[in-house]
Amino acid sequence: MPEEIEGPDRTGRPWTDEETARIVDLVRAGADESTVVARSRRSGPSVVSRLRRMLPLEHRSCPSDMVAAALHGHLRDADYDWRAAMLLTPPPRPVVRPPEIVRTGVAGLTDGDLVGIAHSVLLDDRAATADLRERLVGEVRERGLVRDVVAAHESYLATLREPAGIRDVDEWVHRWSTAVGLGADRYRAYTGYGPWE
């Protein structure tokens, strides 16, 4: 078992020059991490971190259990200046921001825009190609906006009720939603939140 240095526990206190020089002497003499930790009266991570800072920048990523051995190799060179190495700080890691996902086309529409455009296109069969209508209906289904499109059509019909003589708005909404592929049962869209039929 490694011999421990007498004295109070130094964990959490600032490192002194004397302590730092002592652990350098231990490593230079060939002591391993556990011996250096026991003799320093500090926590293992604190000692390893201190030793790691004495390594050249390019060697600081070595495994924790190899730090003392790596530093021992450098300290064999009489010209190695571990104090200068401690002053070096690695460059900051690059900030990597993932590219922003930009949705285009039908998928890029906000929910409100999708509801308005889908209702407008589905209201006039000549307003768009069959492919566009299918994509709009598919996106509305995928986002669960069936109820909103049907409600938009109900509001639209309510504004036409008097001039057009529409008596049963519910029946007109039901027929329209069935015709445009929003589902055969208008009320299912309001209560079920399931996929359209």
Rank of each mutant, 00 (worst) to 15 (best):
10 R>H: 07
10 R>S: 00
11 T>V: 15
11 T>I: 11
11 T>G: 05
11 T>P: 02
12 G>S: 01
12 G>C: 03
12 G>M: 04
13 R>H: 15
13 R>N: 02
13 R>L: 14
14 P>T: 13
14 P>Q: 13
15 W>Q: 12
17 D>V: 11
18 E>T: 11
18 E>R: 10
19 E>I: 09
19 E>N: 04
20 T>N: 03
21 A>T: 12
21 A>Y: 05
21 A>K: 13
23 I>N: 08
26 L>I: 12
26 L>S: 04
26 L>Q: 09
26 L>T: 08
26 L>V: 12
27 V>G: 07
27 V>E: 02
27 V>Q: 01
28 R>Q: 01
28 R>T: 06
29 A>Y: 04
32 D>N: 11
33 E>Y: 06
34 S>F: 09
36 V>I: 01
36 V>L: 06
37 V>D: 10
38 A>T: 14
40 S>N: 07
40 S>Q: 03
41 R>E: 08
42 R>C: 10
42 R>V: 08
45 P>D: 13
46 S>H: 07
46 S>V: 02
46 S>M: 06
46 S>N: 11
47 V>W: 03
48 V>H: 07
48 V>C: 01
49 S>R: 14
49 S>P: 02
49 S>F: 00
50 R>G: 10
50 R>F: 09
50 R>K: 15
51 L>W: 15
52 R>G: 15
52 R>E: 15
52 R>V: 13
52 R>K: 15
53 R>C: 01
53 R>E: 05
55 L>K: 12
55 L>F: 09
56 P>R: 08
57 L>V: 14
57 L>D: 14
58 E>M: 05
58 E>W: 07
59 H>N: 04
61 S>F: 05
61 S>I: 02
62 C>Y: 14
63 P>L: 08
65 D>P: 08
67 V>S: 10
68 A>Q: 06
68 A>R: 08
68 A>W: 11
69 A>Y: 03
70 A>N: 07
70 A>E: 15
70 A>T: 15
71 L>S: 02
73 G>Q: 13
74 H>V: 03
74 H>M: 00
74 H>G: 05
74 H>D: 05
75 L>I: 13
78 A>Q: 10
79 D>K: 06
79 D>A: 03
81 D>W: 10
82 W>P: 00
82 W>T: 04
82 W>Q: 01
83 R>K: 00
83 R>I: 10
84 A>N: 01
87 L>N: 11
89 T>Q: 13
89 T>M: 01
90 P>V: 07
90 P>W: 08
91 P>L: 07
91 P>N: 01
91 P>S: 03
91 P>R: 05
92 P>Y: 06
92 P>L: 08
93 R>K: 08
93 R>Y: 08
94 P>H: 06
94 P>E: 15
95 V>A: 07
95 V>H: 10
95 V>T: 06
96 V>Y: 12
96 V>Q: 10
97 R>G: 00
97 R>V: 11
98 P>T: 05
99 P>N: 15
99 P>H: 14
100 E>T: 12
101 I>W: 03
